[in-house]
Design a protein around this nucleic acid. Sequence first.
DNA 1: AAATGGGTCAACCGCCGGAAG
DNA 2: GCTTCCGGCGGTTGACCCATT
Length: 228
Amino acid sequence: MRGPYYDRNGIKRGAWSKEEDERLRAYVERYGHSNWRQLPKHAGLSRCGKSCRLRWLNYLSPDVKHGNFSHKEDETIIQLHQQHGNKWSLIAESLPGRSDNQIKNHWHSHLKKHLECNHGAKSEFKMKPDGACKGETTKYFEPENPLLGFDSASSSNISESSPPSYCQLSTVAFGEEIYGEFGDFWTQPFVPENTYNQDYDYYSLNCAADGAEVDEYSSYLLDNAEFL
DNA sequence: AAATGGGTCAACCGCCGGAAG
DNA sequence: GCTTCCGGCGGTTGACCCATT
């Protein structure tokens, strides 16, 4: 979080103080927020309207749920991200009490990391030398791990902002196939080197060839997403 | 014990689209 | 049709925290 400071226009920026929070909360609860631009002036805050709006929507609003995301929420986010990509506001509509910012942060700091780290093609570049995601223990594997099922060149074309492809989802499924009886998906080590999995190969091939088949498999995965 | 590096998340930035004049 | 205003959105930043070295 940025420390508080004043910009050249005398507008305060950075972290909100307790007093500012109280002022904003009191004002919005009493008068509402029909005009964010004018609100700080009337509420006696040296903030810009946007900053007030953000603070209210992401933190102060009584509708905002604080605390950890539940597994159910994680599941919902992953499923909706699969459908809509980085449409955080759209995803937030399905998660009462969670702001788009919260969901976005949660995705980047938790969910994406786990998906990539355990199974994604891009994960090879995020692994520590011992092969573990930070804080986890796994075996090292080579960048061109044959288990990934498709080459690094194509995987690198996956844009950060573009919706994940079915191929990416199938890499999530990969762990499921390999660790059919494992307990916790999130904490399972990555696949050991030189392990070949026919099922994965089958589905990775069908990523490009048969969308319907992959759709069906995606549904299966989501229905069986006990690892979440 | 100190230094370092990575993760987290609140907050900012820039852009876009809709409404109003 | 244009300009301006405003709210909303998604990407990015940066300070803090904590684990590791």
